[in-house]
Computed example of a mutant assay.
Amino acid sequence: MPEHEPEQELGPKIADAFQTKADSARGFRSQGMARIARGRVRRRRQTLIIAAATVVVAVSIGGVWGAIGGPSPVSTSAGDSKAAAEGSGPLSDSPQAPSEDSGTACPQSHPIETAPGPEAVPPGTGLDVEQPVYGLQACRYRISPGDPMLLGSAGFNADTAQQVVDAIKVLPERNPDLPVFKCAPSARAKEAIVLRFDTSRGQREIWVAYDGCASVGFFTGSRTFGLYAAPLKLFMKGTVRPAGGIYLDHLKGW
């Protein structure tokens, strides 16, 4: 019978103990790595949640800022660029002024031909001399009863038109240098001039009387200005310039 040796019994026990220790260590390492992985996943999830919350807050603040009048975002689309270009253009509704001496806008017949006199401008037709003007057509008419007609015409640009208005609106109601006639009932004017101004409210007129005996001056229907040479020189040109007139014959400088 072989002799029992203690070393032979301790050897397997020690080996089993070491193996159990190693297994336990591996188990602990596996659990530790799992915990680390789960911790990393949780931190990443928290980071994503915080980032999303930050975006939501930023969008909310941006909406409130826009609502209370903060700077609006600048659009670079072609449509917005076109709208901005159109919006930056002039806001004026003024009509286009005719070219100098166009002479094409005067009607062949006009109410002045049948009016009681060159001072009888119809309501709503006369020019407010404080209103800006953008062009002028000067039309000379023969207003003799039974033989009315357009005698001459000329077109003037905005600058000249405004000069005419500015020269008229400072005049008194009567020129004291002109004579006062005792007029017979039949002493009607043979001709007169209509000044047709382009304005933002449409065409408005001033009637000019320089012949006959009863009426003389510039008439708007609501105001009367005396006959002076300064405005006449600006538009009495070409076929608009009369050969004479009862009052013109006594007026110098026209």
Rank of each mutant, 00 (worst) to 15 (best):
G69R: 03
W207N: 06
Q163L: 09
Y134D: 03
K233H: 13
P111T: 06
Q131D: 09
S144P: 05
P73F: 10
T104H: 15
F156M: 07
H110G: 12
L178I: 02
E9F: 05
A229W: 08
Q46C: 11
G27H: 04
P122E: 00
A243F: 14
K233Q: 08
A187V: 06
G202W: 02
G117W: 06
H110A: 11
S153M: 14
R35K: 14
R40I: 13
D198Y: 14
H110V: 06
R174E: 07
K233W: 12
G87K: 11
G126S: 02
L136R: 00
A158Q: 13
E3R: 10
I112A: 05
G155P: 06
A161Y: 03
S60C: 09
I36D: 15
S24A: 14
I206L: 01
A58T: 07
G152K: 01
A105R: 07
E130C: 05
L150P: 01
G27D: 02
Q137V: 14
G202N: 07
S144C: 08
F181P: 05
R188Y: 12
I206P: 00
G87H: 12
G89P: 04
A192G: 04
A105E: 12
I14H: 15
S77R: 04
I112M: 03
C213L: 01
G146P: 01
P132Q: 09
H250T: 06
R140G: 04
S99Q: 09
P71W: 07
A154I: 03
Q131N: 09
L10H: 13
T199H: 03
A34K: 01
M33T: 13
G152S: 00
D198S: 15
G87V: 10
V165D: 02
Q46K: 11
S92H: 08
D177V: 13
P71D: 08
G87N: 13
R201A: 12
P145H: 07
F18M: 11
V194L: 07
S75A: 08
Q108E: 15
T239L: 09
T160W: 06
P132V: 07
K82P: 07
A189V: 03
L48M: 09
A184Y: 07
S109G: 12
T104W: 14
E205V: 01
R26N: 13
D23Q: 13
T47H: 11
A115P: 01
A15W: 04
P12L: 10
A243K: 15
I168H: 02
G32I: 13
G126Y: 00
P98C: 06
A154D: 07
T47E: 13
G253T: 04
W207F: 05
A189E: 03
A22N: 08
